[in-house]
Design a protein around this nucleic acid. Structure first.
Lengths: 342, 342
DNA sequence: CTGAAAGCGCTTACAG
DNA sequence: CTGAAAGCGCTTACAG
């Protein structure tokens, strides 16, 4: 495998000049640059990232920390982040937490990221105090998606607002007994979305002066199966307490809720209305009413934020960018007015 | 940030000893190892991957090349591969092709992988001759998922067999006019699955001595929308040519096909039966009959294969491992006998 | 079991 | 615009 020395020798210049020419740095004459480029191509030369990283202090890689790669939203955000990173010449190091806190520790506390990456993207979880400390030690740009930490770039939707939008849609249809299938909050103070979406639910119920039965607040897990279980619980309530509408904190859970309603021999939306959040790739297919959020776009913006920060790292400024991306109510077929006898 | 020298100084040994102790190499006394480990922890020392990579020639990273991260099957394989890699101390570099051939070139031909990774996992695409040449240049273990290249490890299902299983299920139910919604084959000689699944379709139709209408072989794109379009085309055929059953090459397309049938005011499986391949996370929810393949497991096996190859790289042997993982017919609610008047 | 020394292949001031 | 030289922080034979 040819090294920078081979290229330098072939062209008859120093390795310093080869390095500058190849990286597009100024202060290299056009003709020299051309010759270097050609020789590098001829020799099939590729700079060693390890050597470049050691010498230059930059790895040209960005770490992406994600709770579960295989979940649609996270995979979409990763996909959105990947394109701008690749275009800018950065590799993407994927750190999948897979839901277990052990690997979470390993990623943050055991400094898996250290000296490996030039920037970090953290998806959908709010780092703990100690994790923030670890990230600060990195001294690299950090951008969060779906969470906020003062001083860092952040891309997210307004979760409370999105929940309120969903709730107002149900309320406008005339529903009064509305349940919420959300995420579990126990020991999960790290996910902002479930908390905020629950808050939106409560806020709108309160604004409408509607009582909330405790059993209407289901703590689930953002999966289809979790949605099935949540809805099954709700349908088991005595008739007077049974909700006529359900606001699920994600489309996956909403889809599960719809399935549970149908399995119980009831109809959506005639007997029960269901609304989700996301606009999952399958939502349209299900004719699911939902509050859409742009997943890929959020990944793209987060990548752009760290890219910009790395660019301007020499300059004084560098205010962290905070994007709140808009959500859109998509009324499809799973919501309607409550049953007539209500 | 502390370096190996700081640790060496603290303990009063050479950096070579620190290096050995930290990596668990033999020929270090227990007491020395203990002291080194403690000092490293105290100093919050983390070895620089760049320096280690440059000096040792190994990067402790594995590249994973994937057509589309956001598609369920690929995301699941990545997830399956991630765990064993992380446990073995390897980072995962994600290369998402995103369907465009330009970035495909960049990944393979422009040597994005070169000197960056100790091994490569290629998902679901058969590398071209020139891509194989690039991979060979890497001189690193390569494992393929869903494809085969002589001499390399490979993990896959028997696609022809899986298709035959699906077809035999439909044939056993009494269907005679069976259509196939598959992948496009044009300029896509790189994906083996669509070709093999089409072959299974043809083989079983021939074995049953059933004629195949050309219009029954739909070239689609493995998406839900593609399934909708494919089925819509089939339903537009004159009654005598309209299939009573459809074998889709993926669950996503099968799900789309089911949707198209329903939108046309027909019922599944009463009017049209639909079977897919995958057992997508939403398949059970849809009560989709399918031929299940283990996605995570394939990722896990592929990772294990390169891990083993890296372990034994010093030894003589090192026969590439080839796993054909089993598929299972899952009969659910979208298949049944053809309509009575047939 | 341990250390001194070379070297991995680049980039970066510093000169000119 | 270009080069000589130092240095980035490790690992690896080679000795002992």
């Amino acid at each position: 495998m040819s090294s920078i020395k081979d290229v330098a020798r072939t062209v008859g210049v120093s390795t310093a000049t080869v390095s500058r020419a190849l990286r597009g740095l100024p202060r290299v004459s056009e003709s020299t640059r051309d010759r270097v480029l050609r020789a590098a191509a001829d020799l099939d030369y590729v700079a060693s990232p390890s050597a470049a990283g050691l010498a230059g202090g930059r790895t040209r890689a960005v770490g992406v920390v994600v709770p579960f790669v295989s979940r649609w939203f996270f995979a979409s955000v990763v996909q959105g982040a990947e394109a701008p990173l690749r275009e800018a010449g950065y590799d993407l190091l994927l750190y999948n937490l897979g839901g277990d806190m052990e690997s979470r520790d390993r990623v943050f506390a055991s400094h898996l990221l250290r000296r490996r990456v030039d920037a970090v993207l953290v998806l959908s979880l709010t780092p703990s105090t100690s994790e923030i400390a670890e990230l600060v030690k990195l001294k690299r740009p950090v951008a969060l998606v779906g969470a906020t930490v003062p001083g860092w770039s952040s891309v997210r939707i307004d979760d409370v607002d999105a929940a309120c939008t969903a709730m107002r849609h149900l309320l406008a249809l005339g529903h009064r007994r509305i349940a919420h299938i959300g995420g579990s909050l126990e020991g999960q103070l790290d996910f902002a979305a479930p908390r905020d979406r629950l808050e939106g639910y409560r806020r709108e119920m309160a604004a409408a002066r509607l009582p909330v039965d405790r059993r209407w607040e289901i703590a689930s897990d953002f999966t289809v199966q979790g949605g099935v279980r949540g809805m099954t619980e709700l349908l088991a309530l005595e008739p007077a307490a049974r909700p006529t509408a359900v606001f699920a904190a994600s489309d996956e859970m909403a889809i599960g809720a719809v399935a549970a309603v149908r399995r119980a021999g009831l109809r959506v939306p005639d007997d029960v209305s269901v609304i989700g959040i996301d606009d999952h790739e399958m939502a349209e297919f299900f004719e699911l009413t939902t509050v859409a959020q742009p997943a890929r776009e959020q990944g793209r913006l987060a990548a752009a934020a760290v890219l910009a920060a790395m660019d301007s790292s020499n300059r004084p400024g560098g205010v962290p960018a905070t994007h709140t991306v808009p959500t859109t109510l998509l009324v499809r077929g799973t919501t309607g007015p409550p049953p007539c006898d209500e």
